[in-house]
Computed example of a mutant assay.
Amino acid sequence: MKLSEVKSVLGKLETIAFQLPNGELVPNHFHVTEVGKITKHFIDCGGTVRNEEVVNFQLWNANDYDHRLHPEKLLNIIELSENTLGIGDLEVEVEYQGITIQKFGIDFDGKNFLLTTKQTDCLAKDKCNIPEEKPKLNLVDLNSGSCCSPDSNCC
């Protein structure tokens, strides 16, 4: 989700809720402790130099039950960050404390911001000779005996 989309959604909300991938909600007394621009300059395993930029929100589960973050306050924090840090309309990722700091993508379901799982990946599969996934065997074929019979030449 791009920053402009997050801002558009915030402008229509009365309260903010973030939902973890397991369905649990981040406690509603959370704080957004950081809004920043993360720049990653790196070289992949195939030797290609890459640059990535994202907007990062850090959520913190505070023991401050008297102060709830309202949409207009988060909008103000975002706008201050855009002006001060020169943040453009980038993809947003969210950090939240689990067993360790976890990074999530973000989406919206009409009510809650959804924290979506992120995966690592090889960016140079063509240079690393990563095999494509092997086709899954059909259990019907296994049960028919045709694959692993002594005359099948497959074992």
Rank of each mutant, 00 (worst) to 15 (best):
K111L: 07
K12F: 04
L10P: 15
E95K: 07
D141E: 15
G86I: 14
H29C: 10
I130A: 12
E93I: 14
K118N: 12
V55L: 04
Q119W: 05
G98P: 07
K136Y: 03
N63A: 10
Y65K: 10
D66Q: 10
V49M: 06
K118F: 03
V32E: 04
N153V: 06
D151K: 01
C154S: 10
G47Q: 03
C147M: 13
A17N: 09
L74W: 00
K40L: 14
G88R: 00
D126R: 02
C148S: 10
V32D: 06
N56F: 03
H29V: 02
G23M: 01
E133P: 15
F18Q: 05
G23P: 09
T48Q: 10
Q97G: 08
N143E: 05
P21F: 00
T15A: 14
L137A: 13
I77W: 01
P21N: 02
K134S: 09
D44F: 06
L137C: 13
K37H: 05
L59R: 08
C155P: 08
E95I: 11
K111R: 15
V49T: 14
F113P: 01
F108T: 03
E34T: 14
E34A: 12
E95T: 12
G88L: 07
N28Y: 01
I43M: 04
D141M: 10
T48F: 05
I38T: 13
V49R: 10
E72M: 07
L59I: 15
K134G: 09
T33L: 06
I77G: 04
N153H: 09
K103W: 00
D64P: 15
C122P: 11
T33Q: 05
G110F: 02
T120D: 07
P135W: 00
T120Y: 03
G145N: 06
H31L: 04
N129D: 13
T33N: 08
N28F: 01
S152K: 06
G86R: 04
D151L: 09
C154A: 06
V55Y: 02
N63K: 04
L20M: 11
E52A: 14
V32P: 07
A124Y: 08
G23H: 00
P150L: 05
F42A: 09
K7F: 03
F113K: 00
C128W: 02
T33H: 04
I43C: 07
L139G: 07
G23F: 00
Q58M: 07
D151G: 14
G88C: 10
E79H: 08
M1H: 11
L114H: 02
V54W: 00
L10M: 14
F113G: 01
N83H: 03
Q102F: 12
L25Q: 09
K73F: 09
E34G: 11
N56L: 10
V92L: 10
